[in-house]
Design a binder for these strands. Sequence first.
DNA 1: TATCTAGTTTATAATAATTCTAAACTAGAA
DNA 2: TTCTAGTTTAGAATTATTATAAACTAGATA
Lengths: 139, 139
Amino acid sequence: MIISDNLKMYVKKLRSSNLRPTKQRLKICQYLFDRDKTFHFTVETLNKKINKNRATKVSLATIYNTVEAFTNAGYLKEILTSKNKSYYDTNIKSHHHFYDEGSKELTDIHYSQIKLSKVPTPPKGKKIKNLEVVIRIQK
Amino acid sequence: MIISDNLKMYVKKLRSSNLRPTKQRLKICQYLFDRDKTFHFTVETLNKKINKNRATKVSLATIYNTVEAFTNAGYLKEILTSKNKSYYDTNIKSHHHFYDEGSKELTDIHYSQIKLSKVPTPPKGKKIKNLEVVIRIQK
DNA sequence: TATCTAGTTTATAATAATTCTAAACTAGAA
DNA sequence: TTCTAGTTTAGAATTATTATAAACTAGATA
Ligand SMILES: [Mn+2]
Ligand SMILES: [Mn+2]
Ligand SMILES: [Zn+2]
Ligand SMILES: [Zn+2]
């Protein structure tokens, strides 16, 4: 995993979405995408991580802007689960989640791990936008 | 549907939950439960309805307090669906929903209308608290 | 029935997450 | 190097919700 290679990749990726590869966006790209496993986060947690032990801070407004831009560009997926906070996911494939009410953390469930053998037809004129299941768990 | 009969019923119901049957709570009971079909609402919509064309207003704080008390008492169920607003449901049975992203409205799906033929086991030490599906729909 | 008090209502303040605003900054085209 | 549209930023504004504390009231008790 050679960082500079990934950096070039992120520059390309951002340009292809008409997003200028600023140092803030690249720093966030590295933090979010230089990893093997899927990553679930809130703006609050991302902000803490990005600005931990770093001289040059990225403003909270930029974290919000960037997460929104990356979501619109399809780099991130928003997971609707909690009533007071938005969750985001680096795994943009269609998949399901466990949501732990205690730790407030999401865990991936592979799409094939849930089989919906019967699904109702949506009301006329409407179509299903998303059928991802969130299973709430607790101790 | 004789209102006074229902009123007596609500008084009993409230007393059985250690909630004093105040005029505000009874008014809200009548609005929420004097109906045949299931009712989905947010605090905002309930507040508007309760205080429409009425001389004596119920404060927003009381609407919040009452919805919370009724939810704790098991008269209402909270539906976690939207990222910025809490939804409540007079249908307290386990069931599923369509959530219309356009109108931001919930519609019931009877429990038997969705069959989950394969469900993953939760992580060790955790158990499933709730497995209700919200299907997001749009035009 | 009058008194008393814990529970309730209410206006208002506080909080938390998010969005908006507008000035300063910068990527990168020309 | 210059220029400008896009970006970052601090801080204000907004929205939903929760907390605070004073006034009110249900209903038990005298
Ligand atoms: Mn919010
Ligand atoms: Mn909120
Ligand atoms: Zn995920
Ligand atoms: Zn429902």
